[in-house]
Design a binder for these strands. Structure first.
Lengths: 209, 209
DNA sequence: GTCTATATCCCGATAGAC
DNA sequence: GTCTATCGGGATATAGAC
């Protein structure tokens, strides 16, 4: 009666859900900037609530971390699927590799808070949580590897490449953009993606004979 | 008389110096694995001393961080200078770019603890210490940029590259190896460097006409 | 759901014996 | 130089009012 839970499935978002979201956004931003050990009090303040209130929405730091990392990978997967789906039927395997690289780079350069938080925090978590997220990272890696293998199979790649290594190298270049790139007048995210594609694709594709 | 300070400049290393070194190595290893907020008690234990003893050698966490980051950059600079010095006089500007990339990659893939700690920790420090280390990073970046510009000036680079962006992209690929690469039977550091050089150099060099 | 107040714990840092 | 013991600050997490 007095609360909105009855209608939350319709369109509006319950107050609770909204606050929870603000906390997650703040957490992503601060994890990104300060790493795993950020003070929860700072997260609370950035979200406009008091420290104690965090615990109504999350069990503690690791619960928060878990959620931020999950959302990051979810967004990434969606973005990759979307880029691939937009390709015309005539797209070659190398076009599909290109699309995947663009998707990854867009995440890192534009949606960046969750993505950059993921980049910075995933490497230092451990235990059960690590195992769980590791699997998602693996799956993403395997998708890209499959795309590379298809391109190789049809002769679009330079001979002699070690595909898993190549994959980690360009994913590293992308991940690292979170540490140095900030949007500005001189360089748009698109211009960085363009340079990335030039270097990586011309570096790995078979020379025209 | 009773201690070794009198002779420490000759050849032997004083006990103090040796312990200090063990602490630094342990710190580099743990900063690398767990990031800035590692517990100093863990560092002490890894170095084989008790927590209290740390404070005889270092003022506190930031003193330790400062030293680890400084050593990392020192080793890197040395390594770059050495690779460049080994080049024959006939080396082209692009050869010099290649040498610099190899030096950076060697640091990341082989000497890795200090280098990887630097990679992980530099982005999250702030204040006066950040400013100091930022300058060293800048200087290193400018050196590489200069090498790239020389290669561009003599027409060895593909037209249309944004050199600072290209630099950050391949340095990112290198930095990120610290997060995934571990030496093993299948892939030597050299083999990773070979793949890196293939992708980056063939990606940026001017096509043969 | 969110607040205030507080209990609890952990860790960095110091003091002082050896 | 290194240890043991301990102090004090600060952050997490909880209890309970509103």
């Amino acid at each position: 009666m007095k609360n909105s839970t009855k209608v939350k499935n319709l369109k509006s978002i319950s107050k609770s859900e909204e606050t929870r979201q603000r906390i997650l956004d703040a957490a992503a931003r601060l994890f990104r900037k300060q790493g795993y050990s950020v003070r929860l009090a700072d997260v609370a303040e950035a979200a406009g609530v008091k420290t104690g209130s965090l615990y109504y929405h999350f069990k503690g730091r690791d619960d928060l971390v878990d959620e931020v990392l999950s959302l990051a990978m979810e967004k990434l997967d969606q973005c990759v699927q979307q880029e691939l789906a937009l390709l015309p039927d005539s797209a070659t395997p190398l076009d599909r590799v290109k699309a995947a690289i663009i998707a990854d780079a867009k995440m890192a350069l534009e949606v960046s808070d969750y993505s950059a938080a993921n980049t910075r925090i995933f490497p230092i978590i451990s235990g059960e949580m690590r195992k769980r997220h590791y699997i998602r990272h693996q799956k993403h890696g395997e998708l890209i590897n499959a795309l590379l293998e298809e391109a190789e199979a049809v002769g679009q790649l330079r001979p002699g490449l070690d595909l898993p290594t190549i994959r980690m190298l360009f994913l590293g270049a992308i991940a690292w953009t979170g540490e140095w790139y900030r949007p500005n007048r001189e360089r748009s995210p698109e211009s960085v993606i363009e340079q990335l594609l030039t270097m990586v694709l011309l570096g790995i594709q078979a020379p025209r004979k």
